[in-house]
Write a protein that binds this DNA or RNA. Structure first.
Length: 423
DNA sequence: TCTGGGGTCCTAGGACCC
DNA sequence: TCTGGGGTCCTAGGACCC
């Protein structure tokens, strides 16, 4: 049986979430900013129509936003995460197997659905149900491979006539769409590859599909070869129903303001270690490799760019926040330089082990902390309860370095005090 | 003044082994 | 004169995704 995938993708997701509890914003342009209010990461249809580009720094368009009366929001992940969970929940009820691909999109395995109705009708059902149960509008692309389903979804978004659902199972329709799709719009082809492909005369998705897979592999990589095959309807990228175990965990943030003091960077790093260790424990893993980095702004013309990282291997893997923090701070001491304006710091964990599976040698030192597991479990439980937050002292009180979020909307669906009331 | 965060995969090259 | 062959592991860097 030929496989069949659907890609369901929310339209202008962050902007749609912001509008969900603000009916007064219907029809008005909205943009959502990245962490730290730095760049534009989402735009409503109206904002797109004004020509506001994706990923542009806020300061470059500030005047235009003001002039066009665009509503600006900081990222509100509590809200987006909750709305996303509701959408995914509905999809899970409609098919046997889904892969949550990102916060606003999921692949569906359509082989299991009742073949009595057409695929397109099923797509329309998905769209209508999410619209009426959650209030979010989605687009649906259906095809025999994930890469084609992505393209079908783009078409569903782009062409009004499709009403938001495109069934691309017919080969004839595939060719028609590939022919009018620039190669840069193909999933897996980024700007660099697009340029290289253009240089050898491949401008459209159809031209890429018609090229020799072996030659493509030789010239580019096995990933691009896979893309060629997928464009021809041969499924090479399977569903991943449960997310694969992480191989690394990264926590980093740009500071709200530039910082110079060691104590501020120390505090930020402690916070990042706490979150990284928490994520590690969620995976049920222990890490052996710890690395950190600090950097100044690459955009400052008056100072040279400083970026340094350092890493170490723990004697025995650990999931104890204290082990990880201790290692990180030791590393920080080796790369911190005075009198620089730091922009960002982060910590990365890697080399993961299941608890208790690591073979120690006679001379390895175990974690210096006893009762680690029970203590960490207790901390995680308290921090997830919503009743309070326990942290280690290294984070200090200073807030100088914390993220800028000046336009944050309420956590409408996840905090009691923020629930909208109707008068 | 001001430029996000968190990931994955692939390849090449060096070190090292027998 | 002549300097093997086959392999693993690790790391850095490049590319991609949302």
């Amino acid at each position: 049986m030929t496989p069949c995938f659907a890609l369901v993708d929310c339209n202008n997701f962050y902007a749609s979430c912001e509008r969900l509890f603000r009916p007064d914003l219907r029809g008005r342009p909205i943009v959502v900013l990245s962490n730290n209010d730095g760049c534009i990461v989402a735009r409503s249809a109206e904002a797109k129509a004004l020509g506001i580009r994706m990923a542009v720094p806020l300061f470059e368009v500030q005047e235009q936003l003001l002039h066009e009366n665009v509503q600006v929001f900081s990222s509100n992940y509590a809200l987006y995460g909750d709305i996303s969970a509701r959408v995914m929940n509905i999809l899970q009820q409609m098919v046997a197997d889904i892969e949550v691909y990102s916060i606003d999109e999921a692949f569906l395995d359509l082989n299991s659905i009742d073949s009595a109705s057409s695929l397109e009708v099923f797509g329309i059902q998905i769209k209508q149900r999410i619209q009426s149960w959650v209030g979010i509008s989605v687009s649906v692309g259906i095809a025999p491979t994930k890469t084609l389903a992505k393209l079908a979804n783009n078409a569903a978004k782009r062409y009004r006539k499709t009403a938001g659902v495109v069934d691309l199972t017919s080969q004839q329709r595939q060719e028609k769409l590939l022919n009018i799709t620039p190669v840069k719009d193909v999933w897996g082809i980024g700007s660099r590859l697009a340029k290289q492909l253009n240089n050898v005369g491949i401008d459209t998705a159809l031209q890429l599909a018609r090229s020799q897979p072996g030659w493509i592999r030789q010239q580019f990589s096995i990933s691009v070869e896979r893309t060629v095959r997928e464009l021809n309807g041969l499924s090479c990228i399977d569903m991943e129903s449960s997310p694969p175990a992480k191989k690394q965990i990264l926590c980093s943030r740009t500071f709200g303001v530039r910082v110079t003091d060691y104590k501020d960077i120390h505090a930020a790093l402690c916070k990042h270690c706490e979150r990284a260790a928490e994520k590690l424990r969620e995976q049920g893993k222990q890490a052996r490799a710890v690395s950190i980095f600090i950097k100044t702004s690459p955009f400052n013309p008056n100072a040279s760019y400083y970026r340094e990282s350092a890493s170490c291997i723990l004697d025995t893997p650990s999931h104890d926040t204290r082990d990880i923090t201790q290692a990180a701070i030791q590393l920080l001491k080796t790369i911190y330089k005075e009198d620089l304006l730091y922009m960002k710091a982060g910590v990365m964990l890697a080399d993961f082990y299941e608890s208790g599976t690591f073979q120690t040698t006679l001379w390895d030192k175990p974690s210096s902390f006893r009762n680690s597991t029970a203590l960490m479990q207790a901390i995680d439980k308290i921090n997830k309860s919503g009743k309070g937050h326990i942290c280690f002292a290294g984070q200090q009180r200073s807030n100088d370095w914390k993220m800028k979020q000046e336009k944050l909307s309420p956590a409408y669906t996840t905090r009691w005090s923020d629930i909208p009331s109707i008068r």
